[in-house]
């Protein structure tokens, strides 16, 4: 039995794997990755080996294997669906796009310093609008006319959004506009390596129905796994 553990900046994910997923768990990292690792290893019992990935991967001192999330996502995603050619992962601080060929990473790209292309963007804006994250996604579903938001950065976008609010625009449309703006960032990122279908969409972003709708508008059909958050942890486990 292998424990795959993916220490992200916002969430830490653990998967117990033994031919199939036996158990899985996700907890908030809260800038305390060590604690998160401890909690996961104490809650998911019965493993004999550990594979770590994610930005805190080096902190898992007793790991048998350490790999980057790029490789982990590629492994996990092709395990979930072997037909895919690209992966879009929308995480809290990072977003990444991976092109797969013959089950291996062919090209990949990650967002630069800017948070505008990450889940963080949505969270910041939700906060500014006084919405809970769960509400946010569903709100966006109720719009056919997303407002256009085009600032390249989170801080600027916040001003722009508040401006829209003061103009009396519908909240649903603003929220949908935020989703579109985020997806536009991702498109820009993906353009650099050329995304090829079929595309698997994963990471925390795939749990947000508003984002999923915006993504589908741009990329057409997307494959969304049942466990979008655990692809990295699963991929780590598979690397042993």
């Amino acid at each position: 039995m292998v424990l795959g553990i993916d220490i992200g900046s916002c969430y830490t994910k653990g998967v117990l794997f033994d031919g199939s997923i036996k158990n899985k768990i996700v907890i908030k990292t809260f800038f305390k990755p060590r604690q998160a690792i401890e909690e996961i290893t104490s809650q998911l019992k019965g493993f004999d080996r550990i594979a770590a990935t994610g930005y805190g991967r080096e902190l898992v001192t007793d790991a048998d294997v350490i790999i980057t999330e790029i490789t982990a996502f590629a492994r996990g995603a092709t395990y979930v669906n072997s037909s895919i050619n690209s992966i879009i992962d929308l995480g809290g601080q990072d977003s990444k796009i991976i092109k797969i060929r013959d089950g291996k990473v062919d090209r990949f790209i990650m967002n630069d310093r800017c948070a505008a292309g990450t889940g963080n963007f949505v969270e910041k804006i939700a906060q500014a609008l006084g919405l809970r994250l769960e509400e946010f996604g569903n709100f966006a579903l109720n719009s056919n006319k997303p407002e256009m938001i085009d600032s390249l950065c989170v801080v600027m976008a916040e001003t722009e959004i508040l401006s829209l609010v003061s103009e009396g625009k519908r909240l649903e449309d603003i929220v949908a506009g935020v989703c579109d703006a985020l997806v536009r960032r991702i498109t820009g990122l993906g353009a650099q390596i050329g995304i090829e279908e079929p595309i698997l969409f994963c990471g925390g972003g795939a749990l947000n129905p508003g984002l999923v709708k915006s993504m589908k508008r741009i990329f057409g059909d997307l494959i969304i796994p049942d466990i979008p958050q655990f692809i990295g942890a699963l991929g780590a486990a598979l690397s042993i």
Binding site: D150, T159, S163
Partner: peptide, 10 residues
Amino acid sequence: VPAPFGITEQ
């Protein structure tokens, strides 16, 4: 000059 749609209240 912002992108199209860009003239804001600010």
